[in-house]
Write a protein that binds this DNA or RNA. Sequence first.
DNA 1: TCTGGGGTCCTATTCCTA
DNA 2: TCTGTAGGAATAGGACCC
Length: 425
Amino acid sequence: VTGGQAGSERTILHVDMDSFFAAVEVLVDPDLAGKPVIVGGAGDRGVVASCSYEARVFGIHSAMPSAQARRLCPHAVFVHGHYDLYSDYSRRLHQIFESYTPWVEGISLDEAFLDVTGARRLLGNGEAIGWAIRSQVKDDLGLWCAVGVAPSKFVAKLASKAAKPKVVGREVKPGAGVLVVPAAGVLDFLRPLPIEALWGVGPATATKLKRLGALTVGDLADLPADQLRRSLGKSGQHLHDLSWGRDPRAVEPVQAVKSVGHEETYAHDHHEHDTLHREAVRMADAVAQRLRTHHLAGRTVVLKVRFHDFNTITRSHTLPSAIDSGPGIARAATALLEQVDVTAGVRLLGVSVTNLSEGGGRQLSLDDVGDEATWSNASAAIDAVRQRFGDEAVGPASLVDAEGLHVKRRGAQQWGPGARGRTDR
DNA sequence: TCTGGGGTCCTATTCCTA
DNA sequence: TCTGTAGGAATAGGACCC
């Protein structure tokens, strides 16, 4: 069995769930069926993570500010996301995928690439496998998905998008469900698409491309490659290749984690150093625990600060050796915070760790004064206590107040502060 | 009228060292 | 010791993805 081998033509599937989070919410609460459902932060600073097709009819889409969504559809049902629930569905989804091929590359909870080149003899062509997966996902999970089938990853992705239901005016038109783009049809499929359809073309790149006269993928293909390289650098060449359907990237089942971080937008800006200092400690603790869960340690600690006016800065510090303890990361993060003037108001604070290495094993230098070694034992004890008694059973002393301990969990605030998510005190 | 949280990748600049 | 230079690591920011 091989994945994307050269020579013979590959068959790659892209599977994409239809409004995944909202569909799961409807599944667990059938009262929501047929209603405009919005999953995301309901507070003033929240955004839409996912919404049902009934909501899309009102012009709502993911990443839209929640306040705007509420104006467009005042009677929409806002649901705060249930990250653990989606993770569970995602895990079952991947089990289905892996029953067809071991070559599965998950790109988010609800999307994956499958290389079925080696499975064709046993299971039929790409289209047959696509229909089989779609109906099994519906039967086993009760959710709809769209499947794109093509000789390359990015064309498969565009095909699955084209196979989705569409909002036309005030109506939802069902999609094809499965769409096949054979090798001979790739260019005809690509050329009429707007350049924004290409993976890697966002607002900034679209503006540049339009200045060069490229509105469609076909226009882009007709531009000289060296002109694109000059104005867009490395990605110019990449986009030109894509416009000609050239995408040799393989489906890669395992991908190394490059960074682990935590960030949070506050319902109200913070101006005091003390509060933010405590927040940095809290986030460092959360990041450290996730690093240890993944058996990782990192050398570079990054502090991210977004000010009241949305201006965002990062400050980083690279340590002589990799660490994974809460206090170690907190010390670096708070030292970086000391150098930032926060008096104008901070809207978001984030702590992340990069430069990761596996194993969590640390090469200690004398500079570390043995702290990380001491904390290594303490961290193991903290992890054991949390596993048994929950995340809030133990944590940094500075985070305890009259209401108890405040420990951050992944997904606890995925889409912005909640409506009552005041953190000011 | 506003703009989340998890990331990856690329580029430019700065600083250090050979 | 001074000067130039080349390369690598660290740093910061921006664009993009779901």
